[in-house]
């Protein structure tokens, strides 16, 4: 069971206190978008055996959504960041580069 720190309230807690919300950084297309773009938005998700940027909610805590960079195989957590960030912070990207290089 993962141990996760919520970036909104700072609490470090068991995975069961959180709810997973799937892949992060998926852009909601404009109302008039093509069928292909809409299908991509609705259904297409990454499933890597690698670092995954994903959405979580501190469901049984402060209730806030946030993003997490987690390796799906080693379960290493590279960082958590705000749900409204358009992309992962540089600091987290650097850490991933450093830790996955070896």
């Amino acid at each position: 069971m993962l141990l996760i720190q919520c970036p909104a309230c700072g609490v470090e807690a068991e995975e069961t206190e959180f709810a997973p919300g799937g892949e992060a950084h998926i852009l909601r297309p404009e109302p008039g978008c093509s069928d292909a773009d809409f299908a991509m938005y609705l259904f297409e998700r990454k499933n890597p055996r690698a670092v995954h940027y994903e959405r979580w909610r501190h469901a049984f805590g402060c209730g806030k959504w946030f993003h997490m960079a987690r390796h799906t195989h080693t379960l290493e957590i590279f960082g958590v960041y705000a749900a409204d960030a358009p992309e992962p912070p540089q600091e987290i990207k650097d850490r991933i580069a450093e830790r996955t290089a070896s």
Binding site: G21, R28, R55, R57, G63, K64, W65, A83, D84
Partner: peptide, 13 residues
Amino acid sequence: HAWMEEWLQTEWF
């Protein structure tokens, strides 16, 4: 309620 919060926090913040 969770659904509303999800949209408010992650899409229309």
